[in-house]
Design a protein around this nucleic acid. Structure first.
Lengths: 340, 340
DNA sequence: TTGTACGCGTTATCAG
DNA sequence: CTGATAACGCGTACAA
């Protein structure tokens, strides 16, 4: 097993000094053609690669970005990571991933681990628990140490950092209005509890769309779900309680597809009896039966923007311009079988 | 913005030497109670954390493991990562993720990037292109440098490293037999081209199950799909060409759910007319309509085992026992609506 | 009890 | 043209 090659070993083998080797490999004009060639060939033959840890230490830059998300098995987050990874790699950065599992403590621990020099900056989407606690001290600490943070999707409003979000209010409003334009009179929403930003905002957009058309908001048509694991019963009860329901906006695929199955089981037709629009365009929407009309959140694009913003900030060392930006990524309504 | 605290700065501030600080923080008996307390309190107050890069360089260990997978948006891979991450974090390791996007070149580049000292070991699942080329020089190089590799799912048989796989042959055989036990007489398989290991093995298992029951293997009932993007037409043609088809084994969810939609559209009933068993238990299987009976690959478990094996190997520095292990993870047949 | 010196791998600066 | 030295941050063997 050939031990990993270092400048030192090359220097020993070729009986020159370390600095000569270093310079030769960087094509320094100070080194004679002859030695340069000799060293470069030797390095190439034995496949020398500079040790990135040593470089990190020297340059005080790791060329790595850390990303903390609640769950990787959610398609949306996977898409975002994919976008982050793509842009980051293009710019010579690597991506370290940690999962909070929606837990505040794990989010804090992960941030602390990564903040000890492992990475140059953060991209993150906050855990549900963090959102409900509204405790952001860990973010503040990291920022105080001069490490930039880009948040996406689940963001903390009053934290200094760039934010990449979609306009949830408008998107939900458009989804609702879309259903009403399809002559649906009793549109309900399957949302999350209010401390989840996106749930609150989407509920708000839903209400606004109704009001704009002079329809009164009926609280019975708003279901706020806390625990995703037992959404079935809640949704079924909701449907039973609202026999006139003819349109549903769901804040995620899962709620939508669950509702769809329950409706079909009860003999309703989709989209004729009840039409559905879901947030988050993922595998479920595309391949479920019937396929779902969705609001695409363009996660890949969000991830790319987040990475680009972060790397920009890392590479313009002037930390003047302490003005942080909030980018609003456009959503797209993708029509499928669940709407007329 | 408080600059990141180092031993050096603490030493300056407290007017002691660096090593005194270092020792004090590690509770060395060499340091007097008094100074120790003073230093520890100061460190705590200003939230000192040792720089992990410096530690990596010193210890020649990064406590990071690299994972390279084809795509993160595939639920199976996301599950595996989740398992890796869980076990790794438990043992104090971080996870760096790179995506090959099914491209050989990107896989090579990523490996080289990570192998330059960024990580202690690899977990990977090979890209399709790598499988078809059968070019594993990048793996050999890394291994030659003394970096352990654990492969899962898509593995290279003759590469020295641990392997975590499922018994694809047996699983496919069981799936096929399960359909035959349900009185299905003409079971077909939607598979991938043969250079994708799992496709080949599952096709083999399918054939074996037929032969065991004295049924002749009919090549018309075997569809090998190369490009996942245009599987619709292929599957539709396949179904049209086999009117007596009454059972389908699909090597992934997507093929299964696509077939399911096409069948329903053609007025077939599932599972009465055609029953379906899919590999990879993901969101689609669970929530599609009808939900799919699947072979669960237990990705979370695979990831956990891979991480545990890798870390074991990293921490037992004796690299004696150069005997590598192949762990076969049990699959589980999860019955849902697509089978009687 | 405290401090000095060294090494991990690299590069930049300065001396020869 | 080449080599020695310092520095990045840390831990530790050794010296005071």
């Amino acid at each position: 097993m050939a031990q990993k090659l270092t400048l030192k070993k090359i220097a020993q083998d070729l009986k020159v000094s370390i600095s000569t080797v270093s310079k030769a490999l960087r094509d320094s004009y100070e080194i004679s053609e002859e030695t340069r060639k000799k060293i470069q060939e030797y390095a190439k033959q034995y496949n020398y690669k500079p040790n990135s840890i040593a470089l990190s230490l020297k340059n005080q830059k790791t060329k790595k970005i850390g990303i903390i998300i609640p769950e990787i098995v959610h398609h949306f987050f996977a898409t975002v990571i994919s976008g982050v990874e793509h842009v980051a790699n293009e710019k010579g950065y690597q991506v370290i991933i940690c999962l909070s599992g929606e837990s505040f403590d794990k989010e804090v621990v992960n941030m602390e681990m990564l903040a000890n020099g492992s990475i140059d900056g953060f991209i993150l989407s906050l855990s549900k628990e963090t959102m409900s606690k509204q405790d952001f001290h860990h973010l503040r600490e990291v920022i105080n140490q001069g490490m930039p943070i880009v948040m996406f999707d689940r963001v903390a409003d009053d934290i200094p950092g760039d934010k990449i979000i979609i306009d949830d209010v408008t998107a939900a409003s458009e989804a609702t209005d879309f259903l009403m334009r399809k002559a649906k009179k009793n549109v309900g929403i399957l949302s999350t509890v209010d401390y989840v930003n996106v749930g609150r905002l989407r509920t708000q957009g839903y209400s606004e769309a109704l009001m704009k058309r002079g329809v009164e908001v009926n609280q019975d048509l708003i279901l706020k779900i806390e625990d995703i694991d037992h959404c079935d019963e809640l949704i079924e009860k909701f449907i039973d309680n609202n026999p006139s329901l003819d349109g549903i906006v769901a804040v995620n695929e899962l709620f939508a597809v669950t509702a769809s199955k329950i409706l079909l089981r009860k003999g309703k037709r989709i989209p004729d009896d009840v039409a559905i629009v879901a947030f988050t365009d993922g595998m479920l929407s595309k391949y479920s039966n019937p396929s779902l009309t969705t609001i695409g959140q363009n996660g890949y694009e969000m991830g790319g923007i987040a990475a680009a913003k972060l790397i920009d900030r890392l590479e313009q060392d002037q930390k003047d311009e302490e003005r942080y930006e909030t980018v609003i990524v456009k959503t797209s309504l993708i029509e499928r079988e669940s709407t007329p």
